[in-house]
Amino acid sequence: MQRVNMIMAESPGLITICLLGYLLSAECTVFLDHENANKILNRPKRYNSGKLEEFVQGNLERECMEEKCSFEEAREVFENTERTTEFWKQYVDGDQCESNPCLNGGSCKDDINSYECWCPFGFEGKNCELDVTCNIKNGRCEQFCKNSADNKVVCSCTEGYRLAENQKSCEPAVPFPCGRVSVSQTSKLTRAETVFPDVDYVNSTEAETILDNITQSTQSFNDFTRVVGGEDAKPGQFPWQVVLNGKVDAFCGGSIVNEKWIVTAAHCVETGVKITVVAGEHNIEETEHTEQKRNVIRIIPHHNYNAAINKYNHDIALLELDEPLVLNSYVTPICIADKEYTNIFLKFGSGYVSGWGRVFHKGRSALVLQYLRVPLVDRATCLRSTKFTIYNNMFCAGFHEGGRDSCQGDSGGPHVTEVEGTSFLTGIISWGEECAMKGKYGIYTKVSRYVNWIKEKTKLT
């Protein structure tokens, strides 16, 4: 034993070699072989497995989906700052455009905790909710729209109204504003409101030439003092309507412009014939205590009207009353817009006519005020429907199939267009061939041609 100890002390290297040989010859039971080890760690190889990531292109799944990435790591994937920024906006807080917040056709661009709407022409605001041009839906104005110097929408209202708090709607500024039905039992019968379409306001006024200088022999019209197929109006439903009495009662109609003036057809009036105007009328054979009678003290036909040349060209006249009318729910003026808007309103496509005229061709006159909704007829169809001249200051309205029309005794009465609950004068009943005849239409004086003249002559002093 002493000898062994001496050998170990003198030859430590020998001992180490012996131990190493023993270990190498022993069977290893701690580690699995290569094949079995792979069965336990069965993990798919990654895209760049075996390579240094710093030297390969980034992978979106590896960089940002398996674990949260930084902007720089995302930049490695896209290799483009702009594309990385677009991805980053949604990656950080989701897609803010998912709810489609942009209105009126706006395009949404996502941002971090926010979004941006790219608005089409005519709109602005956070969600493109603000109209900035009158060309689109009248700028959301209830009545009139004008573009300011910086191309912003400025709404306005006709006389007797003021802008509401929203700067879009119009509200009454006087007790009985024009064009409004205020009798409670008839307010439910107000005709369907007309909503502004998209309009090209630059070209809204037709490029028409008034044929002022045409000389033409007097034409022989049949029954051209021209509501057939209409309905009984309720008291106060058309408070701007008046009836004219002269040699015979209810020979023509008219509309209240203001307390002192009536507008009617020029062919209705004769110099030297006494005319009485009755406002607030409903049943011409009954006294309903809503009527107001006034005498006409002055007749002003349009300066281009000449019955000797043509009885229905420039067929418009103004009547001055001896005493002002007292405005109330049964006696209310009709609204008159400017030339541009009167023309736009007419193009809405349908209007209402009213009167006490004959209820059928050569038949009896109506006792109760009649009204009828009539569609506008395109000019080409209008011209083809008659052998008589249709001037540019006239328009056609009615039904091709016949059966409904204005008729004798309705002449001078109103053709009105309702705009968001307020009625505007767009025409004056003038003439036609018979009444409600198939293929024939009622012919009306186009008020847009005469609004400046009306307003100039009827100013209240």
Rank of each mutant, 00 (worst) to 15 (best):
V199G: 11
L327C: 04
D232M: 15
V416D: 00
S11L: 12
G106Q: 03
T84I: 03
P177C: 03
E66Y: 04
H302F: 06
P44S: 11
S169R: 10
E159L: 08
V331Q: 00
V243W: 10
D212I: 10
K311I: 07
H289Q: 09
N5C: 14
C108Q: 02
E142C: 03
C119E: 02
S182N: 10
K247N: 15
A266F: 02
F348A: 14
C170I: 01
C157H: 00
C102Y: 01
N36C: 05
F121P: 13
G402R: 11
T417A: 05
G427F: 00
Y444N: 02
P324H: 05
R373E: 06
N113C: 04
N80M: 03
E142K: 09
C155H: 00
N38C: 04
C141G: 00
P101I: 06
T186Q: 15
T276H: 07
D410M: 15
N59F: 03
I428Y: 05
K247R: 12
F123W: 14
A9L: 13
T381Y: 09
T81G: 10
V242G: 00
F176K: 04
V451D: 02
D338Q: 05
E456L: 08
N213Q: 09
G272S: 10
E142N: 05
F144E: 00
Q219D: 08
S220I: 14
Y371R: 15
L327I: 14
I256L: 04
Y115R: 04
E288F: 06
R358S: 12
T218A: 07
E82R: 04
G351M: 03
Q237F: 09
P120D: 13
S25M: 12
H34R: 13
D110H: 12
I454Q: 01
G280Y: 02
C69L: 00
D378T: 06
R140V: 07
D95N: 14
N100C: 08
D198N: 15
N328I: 00
G125F: 02
P120A: 13
H400T: 15
E165A: 07
N104Y: 05
T264Q: 01
N104H: 13
L130Y: 13
T381I: 12
V326N: 08
R379W: 09
F238V: 07
A266M: 04
C18H: 06
E208N: 14
W356A: 04
V377G: 03
S406V: 07
Q2A: 13
R373L: 06
V419S: 05
S423A: 11
S107D: 12
W431C: 12
G160C: 02
N147P: 11
W431P: 06
G403C: 07
E323A: 12
S70N: 12
T287E: 15
N310I: 03
G160P: 01
S70E: 10
N393S: 15
T332F: 04
N135T: 14
I429K: 15
G50A: 07
K446N: 13
E420C: 08
S255W: 01
L189R: 12
D338W: 04
I428L: 10
S107V: 10
Y450I: 01
N147D: 11
G432A: 11
L41A: 05
C28S: 12
V257A: 03
N151A: 08
S107T: 13
E53V: 00
T158Y: 05
L325F: 13
N38K: 13
R379C: 07
S184P: 10
Y115F: 12
G272Q: 08
T85C: 06
F348I: 09
S329W: 05
N104I: 03
R62V: 03
M8A: 13
R162I: 11
I7E: 13
V228G: 06
P177G: 03
D111Y: 10
F78K: 03
D223R: 10
V451C: 07
N135W: 08
Y91M: 06
C69G: 00
S25Y: 13
T215E: 06
Y47C: 04
G229N: 08
G246H: 07
S156R: 09
V199L: 08
L346M: 07
P44W: 08
T426I: 01
K109M: 10
Q370D: 04
D111F: 11
D232K: 14
T209H: 13
C141N: 01
D315Q: 01
N343H: 07
G246W: 05
R404T: 15
G413T: 07
I316S: 00
C97W: 02
H314V: 03
W118V: 14
C69V: 00
L60Y: 04
V278R: 07
T85W: 11
K137F: 09
G280S: 02
N328Q: 02
V331R: 02
Y450Q: 00
C145K: 02
N245S: 09
V174F: 05
C170S: 00
C128E: 03
M394F: 08
Y305P: 02
R162E: 11
N151M: 13
N283P: 05
W240K: 01
K188T: 07
I256K: 00
E401H: 11
I309D: 08
G229T: 05
Y450L: 00
S156I: 05
V374T: 06
N80A: 05
C435R: 04
V273T: 13
K51L: 09
E270M: 07
